[in-house]
Design a protein around this nucleic acid. Structure first.
Length: 292
DNA sequence: CAGCCAACCTGAGTGC
DNA sequence: TGCACTCAGGTTGGCT
């Protein structure tokens, strides 16, 4: 009987934003850090960008020192200063088949397979191929085109109320669009922007400029809170890997605004109804009663 | 420069 | 049963 694979994340309605990517990093770290890559196979030449032609050659025999993350990018830092940049796009998922289990059957959208000297199999699967796997070096990492223009990490010290205010001030676009701008703050996507604005009671239609000041004071800690709680939720699913029951790695927690069109707003004394609107061709869920 | 939006891609879901 | 169509969203790059 074949053991189930362990899913780090999946689900078409749970897109990889910062917390999901961080959860993947944390799940992958104990498997990859300190391991030597025994084989690295790319089953197609490209995702959103070309997979390096020397992908296999550069990785085979290489030693993984550490896994880090910048925004929604996972960075696999190797012994020879090689860095693998991994982005999950919208449908990217990583699964681990632990050593000792039967080798996984390679499925249709399993584009990249790594095997470590410890016998763990790591598969990158990405139906829509919006993901990225490419190389850089430790030296050139910060100036890499994919990483150089990314704004501050929302959970780091470089992101604070002043930075948020500076990013919002004078900005004529909506607060929704501003928070999705990775230059203002890294890692927020459609879902967590909706959630943060809902919690903060700020209308997504408001201009960014009008949020600067008092409202930004409310919003700032909420951005951190939403992301931190989601990472904790993801982390708690990672603990379950020991159970090996295959149902793992999903975010069990649901969102309070995102995807809840037509439902009653869950804020205690609101009584409003969550509404879906389209902003820059993207769904926004919010409560018109309590989000002003 | 800021802001807007099409394009990239596939599968699930819906309506006829 | 099948076909046409819509929708999902991260990021880039081209346009205004």
């Amino acid at each position: 009987m074949r053991q189930p694979r362990l899913y780090i994340r999946s689900y078409r309605d749970k897109m990889p934003e910062l917390p999901e990517v961080e959860t993947v990093r944390r799940g992958l770290a104990p498997v990859l850090e300190g391991a030597t890559i025994k084989s690295a196979v790319a089953n197609r030449p490209d995702l959103r960008l070309p997979i390096p032609v020397d992908f296999s050659e550069r990785l085979t025999g290489n030693h993984v020192e550490r896994l880090s993350r910048r925004s929604k990018y996972i960075l696999i830092e190797c012994a020879d200063e090689l860095v693998v940049i991994l982005h999950l796009g919208m449908s990217g998922r990583v699964t681990i088949t632990p050593a000792g289990q039967e080798a996984p059957v390679i499925g249709k959208h399993d584009h990249v397979v790594l095997v470590t000297d410890r016998g763990d199999h790591i598969i990158y699967n990405d139906t829509r191929r919006f993901g990225i796997i490419t190389f850089t070096s430790l030296d050139e990492m910060e100036s890499h085109p994919l990483l150089k223009n990314i704004g501050p990490e929302p959970l780091g010290n470089s992101f604070n109320l002043d930075v948020l205010n500076a990013g919002l001030k004078g900005r004529k676009s909506t607060i929704k669009a501003a928070l999705l701008d990775q230059k203002l703050v890294a890692g927020l996507g459609n879902i967590y922007v909706c959630e943060a604005l809902w919690r903060a009671g700020i209308s997504p239609k408001r201009t960014a400029d009008s949020v600067a000041g008092k409202r930004a004071e409310r919003l700032f800690p909420i951005i951190r809170e939403v992301l931190t709680q989601a990472i904790e939720a993801g982390g708690s699913t990672l603990k379950d890997y020991a159970r090996v029951d295959g149902e793992l790695g999903y975010f069990q927690h649901s969102f309070q605004a995102y995807g809840r069109e037509g439902e009653k707003c869950s804020k205690p004394e609101c009584g409003g109804t969550v509404t879906r609107i389209v902003q820059s061709n993207r769904s926004t869920f919010y409560c018109p009663s309590c989000q002003r």
